[in-house]
Design a protein around this nucleic acid. Structure first.
Length: 411
DNA sequence: TGTCCACTGGAACGTACGGCTT
DNA sequence: AAGCCGTACGTTCCAGTGGACA
């Protein structure tokens, strides 16, 4: 039983001490008992939602702030405790947390809300109005308060407009027993202006802006989690401050700081080392970046991959500025070779905008005077990564050695 | 100073599909 | 089974536009 080929590997996990004491607390989704440097925000939200305990409907609240500034976690933290306290005095408070990255249509929002009040609805097939009616009557069947936390609201608004928001802000006048309060979260600071004025005023009865963390504050946050998450003495000095400093450079993003620390430790553990050092943090930055790009590119639909490849091909060429016109020319050629049906320039334009949203290309609308108005496009990730990842695709493989030089001479 | 390029991006619509209600 | 419905992906149409050039 001792000569299995995996013994050497597994034994290491059994015998050598682990770096992690509790892996879970190092994930951004974990809600710790203390949230350093968010006292004011917690108090603010606590005061705003606390009126629920006195049978008053809390005002609707708008939370702004860049990614990783603690908006989501503060909301979770406060609502979690609010629910506990409410339960202890026999009050009925339901909290529903919607993330609009997944829940990005009117129908899905309402379907989710139906779920939390105990009304089951199919994921498609019903008219949206019907789902809203069902939600409303089920909710109003007893005395209760529903707090809906709508995270990344801009994503929902971008795709589906204000419709649901409008309905939700007005729902209270139709309800007899139940009440609804909204907590809206967005990281787009100018977002509010794009809302319908009627929705805007009722959504932001109260507002709070989350400031980015500075390096010192990030360090406190990481230290707090590290004492719970790691065994004593596994972090070498400087590891936490490096993670904090790197994340502080990018808008004070606590999620990123935490990811760095966790991934660095995972790398150390995989190499069966006993300590986490700055070298592991450096490796972690690279790995995180690579993973994000990989995830994005691999999951693209075929047409989008071909568009992305067109950008790659042009980036490899001698062209100084890449415009949508060039991209479409290359795209058409690629479609011929891969035997795909080409989509229209309008659609390619949309796909480029999507790629820009995903952070893999940069786009900028520019006017070149006499020579028209177009969009300047460039890759925002390394061409080598793009090549490695996209060439895995069956269609892209066929055009892996396509060069744009002959096309550009015809200009 | 006006023209006009090469697009941009909104809006309405079409099609295929899974899935609902009646 | 018929008639809707939402979603995903795409098309068609077209008014609008920043700024180099004549």
């Amino acid at each position: 039983m001792s000569d299995h080929p995996l013994d050497a590997i597994f034994d290491r996990y059994i015998t050598s001490p682990s770096i992690f004491k509790n892996h879970e607390v190092l994930r951004p989704s974990h809600i710790p008992d203390k949230l350093p440097h968010r006292d004011y925000e917690i108090q603010f939200l606590g005061k705003a939602l606390g009126s629920a305990l006195r049978n008053n409907r809390p005002s609707n609240i708008f939370l702004y702030g860049k990614t990783g500034t603690g908006k989501t976690i503060v909301s979770k933290y406060v609502t979690k405790y609010l629910r506990q306290r409410a339960a202890s005095i026999g009050k009925n408070i339901i909290v529903s947390l919607l993330n609009c990255v997944e829940v990005d249509t009117d129908y899905r929002v309402l379907a989710r809300l139906c779920g939390v009040v105990g009304e089951s609805v199919p994921f498609t097939g019903l008219p949206t109005d019907e789902v809203f009616q069902r939600f409303k009557s089920k909710l109003d069947s007893k005395k209760q308060l529903l707090i809906v936390v709508i995270d990344e609201l801009d994503k929902l608004h971008h795709k589906s407009g204000d419709n649901v928001l409008y309905q939700l802000t007005r729902i209270n006048s139709d309800l007899k027993k139940a009440q609804v309060s909204l907590v809206c979260i967005t990281n787009d600071l100018s977002f509010k202006e794009t809302l319908d004025p009627r929705v805007r005023s009722s959504l932001s009865e109260e507002e709070l802006v989350f400031r980015p963390y500075n390096a010192g504050q990030l360090e406190d946050i990481l230290s707090e989690r590290a004492t719970e998450g790691f065994n004593d003495g596994v972090l070498t000095t400087g590891v936490i401050s490096l993670c904090a400093a790197l994340a502080a450079q990018e808008w004070g993003d606590a999620r990123r700081a935490l990811d760095l620390l966790r991934v660095a430790a995972e790398i150390a553990e995989r190499n069966s080392e006993e300590n986490v050092s700055e070298i592991h943090v450096r490796k972690a930055t690279k790995q995180i970046e690579k993973n994000t790009i990989q995830e994005v590119l691999v999951s693209l639909p075929v047409q989008t991959k071909v568009v992305m490849w067109s950008v790659y091909v042009l980036e490899k060429s001698k062209l100084k500025v890449i415009t949508t016109g060039d991209i479409y020319k290359v795209y058409q050629e690629l479609c011929k070779i891969t035997a795909l049906d080409p989509i229209t320039p309008r659609r390619v334009n949309s796909l480029l905008n999507e790629l820009s949203m995903l952070g893999v290309v940069n786009t900028k609308v520019v006017s070149m005077g006499r020579y028209g108005r177009t969009t300047k496009v460039s890759l925002s990730v390394s061409p080598r990564e793009v090549r490695n990842i996209l060439c895995e695709d069956f269609h892209i493989k066929k055009v892996s050695d396509f060069s744009a030089e002959h096309l550009l001479e015809t200009n």
